[in-house]
Design a protein around this nucleic acid. Sequence first.
DNA 1: TCCCGGATTTAGACGGGTCTAACCCTAAAC
DNA 2: GTTTAGGGTTAGACCCGTCTAAATCCGGGA
Lengths: 227, 227
Amino acid sequence: MLSDVMEDYLKAIYQLQRGTDERIRTSEIAAELDVTSPTVTSMLDKLEERGLVDREKYRGVTLTDEGETVALEIVRHHRLLEAYLTEHLDYDWSEVHAEADRLEHHISEDFEARVADALGEPTVDPHGSPIPGADLEPPERPAGEAISEFEEGAVVTVAEVADRDPEVLSYLADRGVEPGVELEILEVAPFGMVTARSSESEEPVSLPETVAHHVRVVTPAEPDPQG
Amino acid sequence: MLSDVMEDYLKAIYQLQRGTDERIRTSEIAAELDVTSPTVTSMLDKLEERGLVDREKYRGVTLTDEGETVALEIVRHHRLLEAYLTEHLDYDWSEVHAEADRLEHHISEDFEARVADALGEPTVDPHGSPIPGADLEPPERPAGEAISEFEEGAVVTVAEVADRDPEVLSYLADRGVEPGVELEILEVAPFGMVTARSSESEEPVSLPETVAHHVRVVTPAEPDPQG
DNA sequence: TCCCGGATTTAGACGGGTCTAACCCTAAAC
DNA sequence: GTTTAGGGTTAGACCCGTCTAAATCCGGGA
């Protein structure tokens, strides 16, 4: 039986690995989970012993297939909960992350199934992130690319807003930056800040690099992968 | 901040205290939580230090007002969750206890409020047990009395079925023993077993003493305290 | 009143998860 | 090829919640 904490580490590694093939370094995990490096090292020892991570000392870790399956289970719980909370308990998308984090380790298989059923087996959560299926196969690479990859004048559709900070999310929602919305890119500053106007809002919105990095968009030509 | 485990102890003491003014003894708590007596002793030390229990060494504990408030918060969570799961996620009343136990420590105040709201601020859970209010004032004494207090021939209405064992609950539900149902008591055996017939079922049902103890009923004259 | 059995507490250990301090490895700069 | 800055690991400590074994207390029976 895995502890909640172990599950958190696996989930963190999974999230950090998202979209890359790089090994994840101790310090990245430490920053993600807000613990010290030695703490991470000792946890990685345990995860390695259980065959959940592949490790090269001093060089970071990757998840084994088994470790990835565990991570996907937790991510599935998390995103189903986010979807349920917005859909049935009137939560705002900016608020669901913290609540889902609290609950994701403590729901039964049965609960998971009932929630998925009540929602009609959704494939994306309120932020546009893919919900792993009940089979726990790794989902496709995330849709689209970061908005910072585009140039001034481009017209794109928001596919995913992967930020977790409620303040950032409220700010974005207020200005019409949500999955499914069309954006016109007005300016890309040299230091990475993107300014755009949403079809839902008069007021343009500026996304500092750290935020822009979490906003993934598709071009009209590109078929909506969740469609 | 209290740990989940501390909350479990406070809840256990609260449940054991239910309806009595007796001090709760170490061994009772140990049995309730399935741990050893020394474990309980050391936890009681901590709870006493924090002012959550009144203790007399070798003589057991009672909750302080503060301890009782914490316990009521957990009980409120538990029973709201039970009600929500049956009402909105299609759980059977025999299944909800375990799931609520898993979740009761991990929901936010906000979640609690939203669930209560979605249910219309219910005052009893699916077992007929009172749900403490948001003010966390101690609820009234439980409704009615144990069915074992009655004699052959009495006609009574089930107010509460406080058992937690899913098998017992399924058995009872199959034979029509649920809150709100009328029962005619057919026989009370000397060793405490009660046999009764439900208005919902042809087949009589026999309740061994341990089960009968958890079935509380009111007489038709007695006004339904939940009405 | 004394003793005894059963319950309670004390003593001491352990695994989990965390920390700080100290040591060590890696890779980049020279 | 050396040096060195900075991240990674080891060492050792702590608290939590748990256990077993041993000591202690309480209350009822003689």
